[in-house]
Nucleic acid binder design. Structure first.
Length: 738
DNA sequence: GACCTGCTGCGGCGTG
């Protein structure tokens, strides 16, 4: 008789029961780890996975043991019932994450003799061919590589996945509300159709604003049956400070806000591991350069390094390794590259310069700090506002950056974050999936495509008539992506074949063209091609200063050599997307009188000023404010989508418009009609879609193949909101005008 | 007024 488990493993009874249900090799691995017990979330997951076939969402903090929670019982299950083909499919959004998870799972599976195969663009072709010849165990793959399998090996899919029982989706939140997430859902749905049975889905995530919406994403047809397991054990303390700073237009000299914030970071972050989110790659370079100088001037070792997606892999790996190495204090000045994914361990503090765009990002970033028991998460928020003078505009006086930073923190504390947008058509990704299904099957009927992608797949907002219009468009002579054979089967056209045959087809997201920046044969990183650089020009990049020595336009290579001066390059980007709820919260912050305890003295003073201005201008009620010289402020009090839609309409009648948080600054010309008349017109008449003609509607990768009509509908389903406009305008007009 | 993510097959060559 084997001894009772309690003698080996001190654990609570429920925990012991969970442990007992795991396969022997898995139990052996757990003992080898020296764990005292399974964590509650892991014990719950064991029960949920082994009892029944329900879809599951597991949410726990980054170091909360989610991977083990899912895989300890899944591996046990695989050992109990061996299958032919891949038994479990793991989807990861990053190659680096797949590499990390491969190491961890290999370790668990070593004694179990269960193969684990990583599969992404950097994995050797030989290794992939071996796995295809003998598919078994766990396959770790990116959405793009899974897409490639469908396109290149469509007929083999049933053989590879016929007995797959479970698909684990890591970092589930990164797929919600993204084109890539729609692609992934389409692929998983196609996989189920291809093998002819449902495959259980398990989502892992650290940050979910709304469990039900995540469940809706994971299994749209049966969201109510998704089991959500939450780790509530690690409710951690949160320490927040919001510091206010003011600056003029010239922000680079001595005594600037960049200098002042850098000095504060230098003073408080040195000696530990930290993340400094600077908001853009340009600002990452500015702050990294300033902090590097501070270290040099103080004759102390360098601890501040830049990290963003345009920097070389080598440099990024160097910074990540330093963050993991507690013997080398390191603060990374970074963009969202360090927001998710790969494990960099616990950081002492998260600094955020300027308000973030979403509460979800703020929450994800904060999750990097305070992960050790008893350690609070620490947020240092820096708000930068303009120095005011007699000529300063109302918009500057309202301190929108500070108010938004406060609003985001308040919403974070309330536990809210942005939900995914449900109704979008995703016509770019639908075009991609049409080509992919045709390639997979060597041809398909329109009916089959519609059922696969829209009826049973994720493109539920697309009805038959819209789908047919899309097919006719991409099958037209001038586009030529598809063509129809005599028996009505849809095949790839010439242009479609060319597209699908190239490896750049698999990803559904757009990437800009770039130069490579090289010093002494070593790549420093990449720059968007719209940077105009000629020999002799200086720049700040990768935390150092360079001078351009040679530009090769054909090969897209720029040679540089060290220099003592420089300015950071322009990286471009899209306008941010701010949710309605954030703007509402800003309105509340203006109207209330309480001052949050986490503001420093300067931030308090700025908040008081902003509220005085808000009251003085009567903005509690007032929605339209003339500024003189034909300029008017229109307070939409809505997020960026509705505000941008109104801006588009006003531009359509000849106004020039600038958008801020919930406010438009409108400048009329001599030919422009009176703004009240324009707004009244919008309120009373259905809107003319021809307005869309002047907007830039080509934002996604496969948009260039669509016509104006389809592009308009796609934009209206996601980035513009004409339907809401009458209501927005009504609100504006019913406030006190003029 | 922004950020991030991904990639196959094949020919040519050297090595064991």
């Amino acid at each position: 008789m084997r001894p009772p488990l309690e003698m080996i493993l001190p654990a609570s009874p429920s925990n012991t029961a969970a442990f007992d249900r795991l396969a022997r090799p898995v139990q052996k691995w757990i003992r080898g780890q020296g764990w005292e017990a399974l964590r509650p979330i892991q014990a719950e997951a064991v029960t949920a996975v082994l009892e029944g076939e329900a879809d599951i969402i597991i949410t726990a903090s980054t170091a909360g043991g989610k991977t083990e929670a899912a895989f300890l019982p899944l591996i046990s299950q695989m050992l109990a019932a061996p299958t032919a083909g891949f038994a479990t499919l793991y989807i990861g959004p990053l190659k680096a994450l797949i590499n990390d998870q491969y190491q961890r799972l290999e370790d668990i599976c070593r004694d179990a003799a269960l193969p684990v195969t990583p599969w992404h663009g950097d994995v050797a072709a030989g290794k992939k061919h071996k796995a295809l010849k003998n598919p078994a165990g766990i396959l770790l793959i990116t959405p793009e590589s899974l897409e490639a399998l469908f396109v290149r090996r469509g007929p083999e899919m049933p053989r590879l996945f016929a007995q797959t029982r479970c698909i684990v989706i890591d970092e589930l939140h990164t797929f919600l509300d993204a084109e890539r997430g729609v692609q992934l859902m389409s692929l998983l749905n196609r996989l189920e159709m291809s093998v002819g049975h449902r495959i259980r889905r398990v989502g892992l995530s650290a940050t979910l604003g709304d469990d039900r919406l995540a469940a809706q994403y994971l299994r749209p047809q049966a969201a109510q049956n998704v089991v959500v397991l939450k780790d509530t054990s690690s409710q951690q303390a949160l320490k927040i400070q919001l510091r206010g700073y003011t600056s003029g237009d010239e922000d680079t000299g001595q005594g600037s806000t960049t200098g002042a914030i850098s000095a504060h970071l230098f003073q408080h972050l040195r000696g530990s591991q930290n993340l400094i989110f600077a908001g853009s790659r340009n600002r990452v370079e500015i702050y990294a350069d300033t902090l590097r100088q501070l270290c040099e001037n103080s004759h102390v070792p360098q601890e501040f390094y830049p990290h963003h997606a345009s920097l070389s892999k080598d440099h990024r790996a160097f910074v990540e390794a330093r963050l993991k190495d507690k013997a080398k204090p390191t603060s990374a000045v970074c963009t969202s590259t360090l927001e998710l994914g790969i494990d960099i361990g616990d950081v002492a503090c998260v600094a955020q310069i300027g308000a973030p765009f979403t509460v979800a990002a703020l929450r994800q970033r904060l999750g990097r700090s305070g992960r050790r028991a008893g350690q609070p998460a620490v947020l240092r928020q820096y708000a930068v506002e303009a120095t005011l003078d007699a000529k300063s505009s109302v918009v500057d006086r309202l301190r929108l950056g500070l108010i938004r930073a406060i609003s985001m923190i308040e919403l974070l504390l309330e536990g809210w974050c942005e939900p995914p947008k449900a109704q979008a058509l995703h016509l770019s990704t639908l075009t991609h999936q049409v080509l992919s299904v045709i390639a997979e099957r060597g041809g398909a009927s329109a009916r089959r495509l519609y059922v696969t992608l829209c009826e049973k797949g994720p493109f539920t907002s697309v009805d038959q008539s819209l789908f047919l219009r899309l097919l006719r468009q991409i099958g037209s002579a001038e586009v030529g992506l598809i063509e129809q054979s005599a028996d009505q089967t849809l095949l790839l056209g010439k242009a479609g074949e060319r597209l699908v045959e190239h490896y750049s087809f698999y990803a559904v997201f757009q990437t800009p063209e770039e130069f490579r920046l090289v010093h002494d044969g070593r790549e420093l990183g990449t720059l968007p091609i719209d940077n105009v650089l000629i020999p002799g020009m200086t720049l700040v990049f990768s935390g150092r200063r360079w001078v351009v020595v040679h530009v090769d336009d054909r090969e897209r290579v720029i040679q540089v050599t060290p220099s003592t001066a420089g300015v950071p390059p322009v990286f471009g980007g899209d306008p941010g997307d701010i949710h309605d709820r954030v703007i509402q919260k800003m309105q509340d912050v203006f109207a209330e009188e309480t001052v949050p305890a986490y503001l420093d003295e300067a931030a308090r003073a700025l908040l008081v000023q902003a509220r005085e201005e808000f009251g003085r201008q009567g903005l509690q009620e007032r929605r339209i404010m003339p500024l003189g010289e034909g300029r008017v402020l229109v307070f939409t009090r809505t997020g960026s989508i509705k505000t941008a839609t109104l801006a588009l309409v006003l531009q359509g009648v000849g106004c020039s418009v600038e958008a801020y948080d919930g406010v438009l600054e409108v400048k009329a010309s001599a030919e422009t009609p009176d703004i009240i008349d324009v707004l009244t017109q919008i309120k009373d008449h259905p809107l003319d879609r021809s307005l869309l003609a002047q907007a830039n509607l080509m934002t996604e990768k496969f948009h260039p193949f669509l016509n104006a009509e389809l592009l308009g509908e796609d934009a209206l389903s996601s980035r513009l909101d004409l339907m809401a406009l009458p209501q927005v305008v009504n609100g504006v007009l019913n406030g006190q005008a003029y």
